[in-house]
Design a binder for these strands. Structure first.
Lengths: 142, 142
DNA sequence: GTTACTCCCGTAGTCAGCTACGGAATCAAC
DNA sequence: GTTGATTCCGTAGCTGACTACGGGAGTAAC
């Protein structure tokens, strides 16, 4: 149970979290990470809890949450708001799924265009370009 | 074959293209859309070719091309650079596919967390939050 | 005790893609 | 011939997530 003694400067914290010092200071300004009060000397020290919070932020970002949304999640962090967290998770899941299906449509369209391009190689008319000009309406991939 | 007589002001063009006047003027500044010279009076007029170009831009944007990339595509527009266009299309297709697979991983992770949340309803510990804190490593969804 | 690094803090810049503002000119309708 | 909308043009602001800069203070190594 050694927790507090593992203290580090902001530079070490940044290295441990795999991000830049300026990024952490930016999160502090946004209110996502607390600034520990600095001792009588002058330099602030951070513990493992600060590191955990940075992990939280990074992971939630990877899941597609914005920093504002992460701020919301952090207020639920005491564990007593499971339902609210779940709702946020469900909303994010829905938006991720929407993004995926939109990207799939784009994939089909692009793939079709590239195939056509390959087939017509050497031709003067480029099917990719002309499809873009026509807004894809006349193409089979929409 | 009536083409030129279909001329419009920038406002009408914007409406036809489904975008704002300021957006078109922004594209002109970026060099994506030409500014027709204005007649002795004062107001510029745009034809269907300008509209086609806006369609081109919008569609290419939907396909995930940035405005810079679209500028590149537009220089290939004479149709004699089919191979180059195809290469750009293939690159974009690869990046779309990468995005999709990354989003799928995110989907799985989020879905797992939300399921756990549902299962543990009423519990004090929220699995979604704690997983975020631990960086998902200890969770089954990575 | 000096050199070299790191920290502190505020402010400002970056990127993409718009969006808004302001003041003058012009056009369309009545 | 006046009102009200639109155009023109340059410049400036916005969003999100950083990233950089500058100058002073503290800290670690030799």
């Amino acid at each position: 149970m050694s927790k507090k003694q593992h203290s580090m400067t902001i530079g070490a914290l940044a290295k441990a979290a795999g991000m830049g010092v300026e990024t952490i200071r930016y999160y502090q300004r946004r209110g996502l990470v607390a600034e520990p009060e600095k001792p009588y000397g002058s330099i602030r020290h951070y513990d493992d809890q600060a590191l955990a919070r940075l992990h939280f932020i990074r992971t939630a970002q990877w899941l597609g949450f914005s920093l504002d949304e992460i701020g919301g999640l952090l207020t639920l962090q005491d564990g007593t708001h499971c339902d609210e967290a779940r709702v946020l998770g469900e909303q994010k899941l829905a938006s991720v799924r929407a993004k995926i299906s939109s990207l799939r449509r784009i994939e089909r369209a692009l793939d079709g265009l590239v195939q056509e391009c390959c087939a017509q190689r050497g031709n003067v008319e480029c099917p990719l370009i002309t499809s873009l000009q026509d807004g894809l309406e006349n193409s089979a991939f929409t």
